[in-house]
Simulated assay, not measured.
Amino acid sequence: MSEVLTERSARVVAARKLTRRSGRDAAGAFLAEGRQSVVEALAVAEPGLVREVFATEAAAAAHRELLSGTRVPVRLVTDRAAASLSETVTPQGLVAVCALADVPAAALVQRPPSLAVALAELADPGNAGTVLRTADACGAGAVVFGAGSADPYNGKAVRSSAGSLFHVDVVRSAPLPELLPALRSAGVTVLAADGQGEVSLADAGPAGLLTGPVLWLFGNEARGLDPELGALADHRVRVPMRGRAESLNLAAAAAICLYATQSAQV
């Protein structure tokens, strides 16, 4: 870690391209910024997941124990170089370059997890990360991002996941119209979250709909779930609301549905 790289250094320039989806897809890598993300990335046993870590001198000193205990190359960078790799107002000066770890959709059909989530045309990367974090907390095995959804490797999504991105299987750009029937044929109960659903979440548990394997399907934050896609589910489930709120935030609805399912599967 003797040489201090600047924002013009070739390695930093190459890493900066990973702030764009086209750059991530081309390089097969993404950036994980901040201590929590870097800790979780380094904790994964899969060889080659973390390619290198960039750290300012201050960050390297603050996280000496973490960085000295890894065999991953650690590159010292200037504050300006670290800022060029960050998408936050106050960069932490610690960024890991990680390999994309997508799982093919077919793998879920071959071995369905007891609990999974599918997101159809999810727009907000922050919601993507929050759903990943919630799914991880509930013991879900996979989060599926349908074609047209936000990239879970977007910087905001990675930060919002707080490291959970490294704990669950991630499927990107999945063809949901083909995947959902295949999962149902494999014995998965597909439940579409829909404010106008014919089944109340309060009744779904007693009716035995939440015992695994279960996949929850959520739609776009503004438009909701496309009716044609929702028709591919076994049931459309609504979250009962007693107050006067027009609807629930997508991430909040996902948390309620996933925790209810987790409780039913214990």
Rank of each mutant, 00 (worst) to 15 (best):
D25S: 14
A120I: 03
H167R: 15
L5Q: 04
G148Q: 08
T6M: 08
A43Y: 03
E7I: 02
T78A: 09
V4E: 13
L132S: 03
A253Q: 04
R35Y: 15
L76S: 15
V77C: 11
G219Q: 05
G197I: 01
R20V: 03
R236S: 10
V38P: 01
N249T: 13
R159N: 08
G187L: 05
R20A: 10
L122C: 08
A123P: 00
P112E: 09
G205L: 06
L258D: 03
P213R: 13
P91K: 11
S9R: 05
H167G: 12
R223E: 14
D151R: 08
T6F: 12
V237R: 00
A231H: 11
A162T: 07
A45R: 03
T19D: 03
S247P: 03
L225M: 02
P112H: 13
A55H: 02
E178M: 05
A147Q: 09
R21I: 04
H63C: 13
A32Q: 13
H63P: 07
V77D: 07
P213H: 11
G141H: 00
G48W: 06
E7A: 12
L85Q: 09
L94E: 09
L66Q: 12
H235D: 07
A128K: 02
E52K: 06
L115N: 02
R184P: 02
N249R: 11
L217H: 01
